[in-house]
């Protein structure tokens, strides 16, 4: 079992300073213990994939990191601040530096693509002129290759396009960290691969660190600098794709069959 023996990180470009530190995090819903003594670090510039079975608490984990769910105990340090201790306005300031891509995209139905992208900008960059906002919207749409959709509504977009627009909205505030909740779920393999490649390109372009929740091994292979196995609420093992793929541990093998 690889267990706590942390394997070498294959990325050389990262520096050692963790941008996210989770220490002894516990979270239960009634009698269902989702996270139990979960401990893990995300270093600057690193892309970590959290792999685990459905219902194992992967989404709960990133929702705890962004402050949507409060853990029962433990510390969640994001960019130097312990998330469970923050009030609403302090959380808002941290959230402007942490992007979150929802599994369902969560685009605002009643707004056009432009308004979806402008929404966080108008609130966090209140001193920006309309021209500057337009420029940033164009730049974000350009990075996901969908400049022509600016005046469309989410209902007019395909699944892959929605995912790209949601990614553009996540990137528009130029976050330091991005949390992806199953970014390729519900997409065909080709679009899924395109999204995974796009995530890698954007991580390099914007110099972001990221945590990706995924079941899609193609996506994991493309995106992951490191994989964290979330089993029984714990960080069961971590390492590179190749390290875990060749592991002898039965629980880990199940994921790579």
């Amino acid at each position: 079992m690889i267990a706590q023996a942390q394997l070498n990180n294959r990325i050389d470009t990262t520096n050692d300073m963790p941008v996210i530190q989770l220490s002894h995090v516990y979270k239960s819903f009634g009698s269902n213990r989702v996270l139990q003594d979960f401990t893990f670090d995300l270093k600057k510039g690193e892309n970590v994939v959290v792999l685990g079975k459905s219902g194992s608490g992967k989404s709960v984990l990133i929702k705890c990191i962004i402050g949507l769910i409060k853990p029962d105990s433990g510390t969640i340090n994001v960019l130097g601040q312990n998330i469970p201790d923050l009030n609403h306005s302090q959380l808002d300031k941290i959230r402007a530096k942490v992007g979150f891509l929802f599994q369902s995209n969560a685009l605002y139905d009643s707004m056009t693509v432009r308004e979806n992208l402008e929404f966080p900008l108008r609130r966090h960059r209140a001193n920006m002129t309309t021209n500057q906002i337009d420029e940033l919207v164009r730049e974000a749409l350009n990075s996901v290759g969908l400049e022509h959709t600016v005046d469309m509504t989410p209902s007019e977009l395909s699944g892959g396009m929605k995912k790209r627009i949601a990614l553009a909205r996540t990137l528009i505030l130029k976050p330091e960290i991005i949390l992806y909740d199953e970014p390729t779920t519900g997409l065909d393999p080709i679009t899924g691969k395109e999204i995974s490649n796009l995530m890698c390109e954007l991580a390099k372009k914007y110099n972001t660190s990221s945590i990706v929740i995924s079941h899609d091994l193609n996506c994991v292979k493309i995106v992951a600098d490191k994989i964290v196995m979330l089993i029984d609420g714990k960080c069961y093992a971590q390492g590179s794709y190749e390290d875990l793929q060749t592991s002898d541990d039965e629980k880990i093998k199940l994921f790579f069959k």
């Binding site: 959380l91 300031k93 969560a106 605002y108 139905d109």
Partner: peptide, 13 residues
């Protein structure tokens, strides 16, 4: 559809 959560995580109220 998590749109309210999306507003929340983008740091808007």
């Amino acid at each position: 559809t998590e749109q309210i959560d999306a507003m929340e995580v983008s740091g808007t109220n």
